[in-house]
Nucleic acid binder design. Structure first.
Lengths: 327, 327
DNA sequence: AAAGCCCCTGCAAACGTTTGCGAAAATGTT
DNA sequence: AACATTTTCGCAAACGTTTGCAGGGGCTTT
């Protein structure tokens, strides 16, 4: 590694390391003449400060960690993109780790982040995360943790999520207003708090709960098969509600397969990030749950924490209904 | 930051820092008794080695950089996921930066990676990248650069991409074998080398080029409108070929809107990452251009480079046709 | 001319590790 | 009992930077 350091610069110029250091950061103590000399030599020698040394010395690496189930996911990639964008603008770097929804991997990831002395962690916990100890260690080190999307039922932590209840409620209201009684509502893994919230709000809001059928699908494929079985025989539900993009795509595949016309034969509404609904014709009506917005909000809260804000809040990104032609 | 260091451990135990260090890495010089003592104290004090210090001292941070146009993209997120997976297994970390297809941002990203003394960079260049200097600096620092997907026309660099020509050719062959003459073939931005390669291979292989129509769509939306205009009046093309997922989704939306039955009224084949084809019914037949595989291959080449391999090659990930029901 | 002051620069410690080398303590060998 | 050997440990330098402090030189002020 042919790397030029402050030492090398100082030796060439016959000055001390500290002078070189100060010259490069435009310190008022240094004369313009030496500043010019140092800066020029630094240019020609392609000096690039060693980030590791700076971090070690200053104990501030401006590094943020993200632990996410999977990067290749239409929700989390938007979240990550938002964080990365903001971070770069603010001079922070991000370290992104995938947990694969495996609690053990998650714990290892957190360890790695601790060892790297990140100054903040965004975490979306796995469905099987029970041990909060790795997170507590972070907090003990005064490293703020912002939980997003899949947040723990854990007292006094910072939780930022989609306005789950509100979103599900909005969808239910839209169904009510359309005068729809018989709904097939498909939710995700019932063990997740996000599912619980959405399901509860939905059933509380929907006008004719008794004529609805609420079911759970754990995957794209299960959403597909379940929709197929529920919609292959009469009487069809009037509408399908999909709790997530994953479920929406599965459901839509079944609807395509069955050749059902939207919205004539069946209506569809979903909670979605916004990308998938537009792929279909007609565009699916959905309540937007934006990973991008979630990222922005999370980042701002993180900045507040780093700047001393220690209040543990539960924030939600507001949501809005985007009308397509499926209702 | 309430952080415990080797120094603290050594002070508590009345031993030297070096002994503590060696004890924790099971160095043979240290007696079992002291090892046990040190390890136990480290446990209870939650000692986590400071990665920055280690990196500074050992000049090896096992950190890899990725520069990608956008994280929230169905191709790159798979690529990134593959890299992250492998990296973590091998004890490497990754730093992911988005260029937003902006050459200036790209240059800044590379600078950041240099400053962090990464030991390798994966780069997918922007369409407007002309200055190769930031990359050359990396190479001058002996940091290997693996270009992937969008690779520069630049001598002596490591390029890893989808077997573009081969993939397009395979799709054309499949159309030939199905006895299809009249194809609507939709390609992407003609300025990109990836488009050129795919288009040329396609037209060279297709059996009845004169009855085919080759057009360009620059976006999802353009693919949608173009497909709509080309397929809304008789005689319909027998099949549509889509160069990418972006185009496929646009085309499919038009087909859904027009209510055309696949494969009865129109056939579809695409080059794809593999995710979108399965969303439809029937599953779209496609030639797989896997971002995930690309990531795996890139990573292995990177490991080879880090271990001394300095041969500049041009690799491609093999592709295969995945038969759905759309042809 | 002595004292005071401002400019500029260098010294040295510190951040938390790793590691070559030397030395003390323990053990084995004549 | 003297010596050789092994085991176990500590010293100190190094990685590249930042930063408090002190000090030398030139200037102005009484």
């Amino acid at each position: 590694m042919n790397t030029t350091t402050l030492k090398k610069i100082s030796e060439v110029l016959g000055i001390s390391i500290s002078t070189a250091s100060r010259a490069l950061k435009n310190h008022p103590d240094i004369s313009e003449k030496t500043k010019a000399k140092v800066i020029e030599l630094a240019q020609t020698l392609d000096y690039e400060p060693n980030a590791n040394a700076i971090h070690l010395r200053t104990n501030n690496n401006r590094l943020l960690g993200i632990v996410v189930p999977s990067i290749s996911n239409f929700f989390y990639d938007a979240f990550i993109a938002a964080i990365e964008e903001e971070a770069r603008q603010q001079g922070y770097s991000v370290m992104i780790l995938q947990s694969g929804d495996n609690a053990e991997v998650e714990a290892n990831n957190l360890k790695l982040l601790r060892q790297n002395r990140v100054c903040g962690v965004f975490a979306c916990i796995t469905p099987t995360t029970t041990q909060m100890q790795p997170f507590e260690k972070l907090l003990a080190m005064q490293i703020p943790v912002v939980f997003f999307d899949k947040v723990p039922d854990y007292a006094n932590c910072i939780r930022i999520s989609i306005a789950d209840a509100e979103a599900a409620s909005m969808a239910a209201t839209a169904l009510n207003e359309a005068g729809i009684k018989k709904v097939l509502a498909i939710f995700g893994n019932p063990a997740m708090s996000i599912t619980k919230k959405r399901m509860q709000a939905f059933s509380n809001t929907i006008q004719f709960p008794k004529s609805c059928r609420l079911i759970h699908a754990h995957s794209f494929y299960e959403a597909y098969t379940l929709t197929k079985t529920h919609c292959s025989h009469k009487p069809l539900p009037e509408a399908v509600f999909c709790m997530s993009d994953e479920i929406l795509t599965g459901t839509m595949k079944a609807i395509l397969e069955l050749g059902l016309q939207i919205p004539k034969q069946i209506k569809v509404i979903a909670l979605s990030n916004g990308f998938f609904p537009q792929l279909y014709y007609p565009i699916i009506t959905y309540v937007e749950t934006s990973g991008y917005q979630l990222g922005k909000l999370s980042f701002h809260k993180m900045m507040a924490c780093i700047n001393g804000d220690r209040t543990s809040t539960e924030l939600t990104v507001p949501c809005s209904i985007i009308k397509g032609g499926s209702l």
